[in-house]
Design a protein around this nucleic acid. Structure first.
Lengths: 145, 145
DNA sequence: CTGTCTGCAAATGGTTTGCACCATA
DNA sequence: TATGGTGCAAACCATTTGCAGACAG
């Protein structure tokens, strides 16, 4: 709630934002840390967390914590929905047309003043559908239907 | 994925399920633990977690981990959506008619075989709308718009 | 009896935080 | 140079797990 704006434009912050915006995927903090580390070998995971939090408070990126243990970060700010693979954990954007479906909702519901929503579809991604053999291991990050 | 069915119908398991089904709210594991403890004073939190996990694997209850740090549990199995208050963290069911909107979605999207979805509306509950004074403290469990 | 389940406590894993030093404005 | 940011490591907190004893079938 503390919308504290930052003053310094540090090398770390710049690179974290840059690398995140470069990705079409939605990495976890640890995943992005590994990527950023290729350019800033001494950066710490704590710094990545601090900056991701700050950038998301400033609405420069989106943080979403749908259903899984780890938060994921998105380099864009337009609201949109996601597809999550139950087997491999991959998270992708719902492509344009399908996303449009979800844009209008009642502003009032059950006494709640609704200001937004979070929507995610779960299923199997194209890759995992082709390789059902991988089903035996415990890679499944969720126990949904 | 390991749909291992349980064999024993223990007092603990029975009471956990019973108390959860009695509630209209969606407690966290710790919350339910406090409730169950009134009937089983020596039960451990670990047992509550173990049974909630088992019951949800057996499709006798629902576990959902939308966006917040703690998972929440629902004593019913019919799929339905939720309303989450950004200020107090309360989670309620979306009432019938509104819920119907969200039931049909494409079965295929972006190569994914979609088997379900998770939808949650965020906003302010009736109570928090009446008491905007509480806004100053850091009780807000989420940083969504 | 026997194999599951429980209570306990320690371990885990993602995230946050305190602190002393560093570097941006 | 002042102060916000960083790296490091320890702390946190929800959840999981190993183990020895308890109990359902």
């Amino acid at each position: 709630m503390e919308n504290k704006n930052f003053q310094r434009n540090t090398r770390q912050r710049r690179i974290i934002l840059e690398e995140l915006q470069k990705l079409k995927s939605h990495p976890t903090a640890a995943g992005l840390y590994e990527i950023v580390r290729r350019r800033l070998s001494k950066i710490s995971l704590g710094t990545v967390y601090r900056n991701l939090e700050l950038l998301s408070q400033m609405r420069m990126i989106q943080k979403f914590e749908f259903s899984a243990g780890e938060a994921r970060y998105d380099g864009t700010i337009e609201p949109h929905d996601h597809l999550r693979c139950l087997q491999c954990g991959r998270v992708e954007d719902v492509p344009g047309s399908a996303a449009a479906i979800s844009r209008e909702w009642p502003e009032e519901c059950n006494g709640f003043c609704v200001v937004g929503h979070r929507l995610e579809f779960v299923g199997l991604c194209a890759q995992c559908r082709r390789h059902p053999a991988d089903c035996n291991d415990d890679a499944s990050p969720n126990a949904y239907p």
